[in-house]
Design a binder for these strands. Structure first.
Lengths: 108, 108
DNA sequence: GTACTAAGAGGATCTTAGCAG
DNA sequence: CTGCTAAGATCCTCTTAGTAC
């Protein structure tokens, strides 16, 4: 079972999640903490596949689009569905890791 | 539900997957297609969290460690388990996307 | 409003060359 | 062997400034 191209998968999942959330590229970027003046080009570059976001940015986009981060990297459509439907039930082990900032994307 | 720091998660999952596969950092890198002379430092930097691999490299590491790529990004331990145990059953829709090369990591 | 693109500035990773257990 | 690190060279991303629908 060879892995599919992860970048192509990422683009597809990101777009699908954004549209499912009913947001424009700019709106998603802003909701993910990007400056309104840069949100549109940056999210666009991610969706088209020209640039790859780092993990911090990808996590914010996932949160803004209401999907788990792992959803963006699921190479199998069934696995993607399983991830999207996953409810973090009683998370007793609240192992809180501090939220770090990503490269440039100021989170506020 | 705030997302945990994805880089810290990635480091933890990568190390766990590598040890579960019974490989050294160098061995994992070589199995992922890296040159034997660079495999050790590069995998180490990923595991310690100093550098972030791009998606292509992450996908090769996941394949070499016998876990789905999405496993590295699962912020919830239960979700991680679900992903790891996921069997891509009869994948009838063989939507083969061409495997692309990543930044520097020559795959052969 | 929406999606999308080019190009320079800036900042990230990669390779090499090492150290310690 | 193993895990791990510093520094310069290299390459990718981010912002700005735009086009087109």
């Amino acid at each position: 079972m060879r892995p599919l191209d992860p970048k192509a998968i990422f683009c597809r999942r990101l777009r699908e999640a954004r549209l499912a959330a009913g947001l424009s590229q700019k709106q998603l970027g802003i909701k993910a903490g990007l400056d309104p003046f840069v949100a549109s080009p940056r999210v666009n570059r991610y969706e088209v596949g020209v640039h790859e976001p780092d993990m911090g940015m990808a996590a914010r986009l996932a949160y803004a689009a209401s999907v788990p981060l792992a959803y963006f990297y699921a190479d199998d459509d069934r696995l993607a569905q399983v991830i999207k439907d996953f409810k973090s039930s009683g998370s007793k082990l609240s192992r809180k890791v501090t939220v770090a900032s990503s490269r440039k994307g100021k989170a506020d």
